[in-house]
Design a protein around this nucleic acid. Structure first.
Lengths: 208, 208
DNA sequence: TCTATTTCTGTCCATCGGTACAATATTTTT
DNA sequence: AAAAATATTGTACCGATGGACAGAAATAGA
């Protein structure tokens, strides 16, 4: 199994070479063309194209780990969502990187404990609601919305612009506005900011 | 690193003293006032106020483990959601308690394997990374801002419009815009929505 | 004292966001 | 079948937002 490093920061390469002496540091293109199935690819999130790169590499059978200088849950979730199998601090100790390599190359997923706790906590709400409370906080806010409106509301709650929502749902921006007007009226909020607050207050899952 | 025990059950104290001879058994108030950052606090779930106590202790930099006579998934998830880092049976073997202490005091999370398997379907590994530099998340995001910029950022994160912020801080709308421009640049966000997300993601306090 | 930082303000302008009028087609309910 | 709800798109209007140029006063540090 080979290791590949993708970064713009030259100072990182020395660090990584130390952790994995037989690793190769290269560009996105080179990795895409020469990496073999099963190889492990470490990508710095400072590489702007890391999401698309991840999306391309994962289907090729490569294992991707994202490294971030300022790890945060949202980016971690995005990384996992795109198929990455690990999310670590760029400056994690070499011993940690070795452990990460071990875990992810054996079908494991490596993620920080804060995120893990949140994921578990979020699942808890979903589970407990189904088992004992049919009327849940999901319905409290989003239940009055139609399926389509829910989709728009969630996209907006993630910070998307109207244009982005339109692209995501493959409808025109005008339609997004129409749905939003209905959402605002039904939920009694004045704009997308208040909508965001309303949803995030009781429905953390919108970020995942 | 000190150990603190919070319980109403006197019989537990002897047990815990055996596991951790240098530990202190005391009340919630005492712990809150004397425990130091990094200390490990064991709380029996028979203490009715354990959720609120956990919520107060975690932000203080304390590591919290909840002990339950009748462990169940729902309570465990609630504990984790509140920031506890471990959930164990009150009568777990002393050797187990020692392992728990080792894991949680090294940034790990301890939960029963049944729960872990149930919630995450076996795809996650309960390994954890030690994220160095535990600069708190407040400074992570807002530390680079000036005092005034922080005020503007927090107001906007609560969903206020520029006009409202201007009124609140008794400055012109133009000044609010100037501060916002600086905030966006410093925090690398494109607009107030992303700012909102960035702040609420790791700093729940701003929205509450 | 000089400099850098911070705070506050101005105008202009392009874009975004939301509403007010719409209309049409599809699906669901009665 | 008729009615209601849902999903879609259009034009026009206007306030909100954010950047592009600014400038000026106060404060803190060297």
């Amino acid at each position: 199994m080979g290791h590949w490093f993708v970064t713009l920061d030259a100072s990182l390469k020395a660090r990584w070479q130390k952790a994995f002496p037989d690793a190769q540091s290269s560009t996105a293109d080179v990795v895409e063309q020469h990496a073999k199935s099963g190889d492990l690819v470490w990508i710095a999130s400072s590489v702007a194209s890391w999401p698309t790169l991840t999306q391309r590499l994962v289907p090729m059978g490569l294992t991707v780990v994202i490294l971030s200088y300022s790890p945060h849950d949202k980016e971690a979730l995005k990384a996992l969502d795109l198929g990455a199998r690990g999310y670590v601090h760029t400056l994690a100790a070499v011993s940690v990187l070795e452990q990460v390599a071990l875990v992810v190359s054996n079908q494991g997923i490596w993620v920080g404990q804060e995120l893990l706790a949140k994921v578990i906590g979020g699942s808890f709400r979903a589970l407990s609601q189904r088992t004992e409370a049919p009327a849940n906080d999901y319905d409290d806010h989003l239940g009055v919305l139609t399926e389509r409106e829910r989709g728009v509301a969630l996209a907006v709650a993630r910070g998307a612009t109207n244009k982005e929502v339109a692209r995501q749902l493959d409808i025109t921006e005008r339609t997004v506005k129409a749905h939003l007007s209905a959402i605002f009226r039904k939920l009694s909020v004045r704009d997308r900011l208040q909508l965001m607050l309303k949803l995030s207050s009781t429905n953390e899952r919108v970020v995942s």
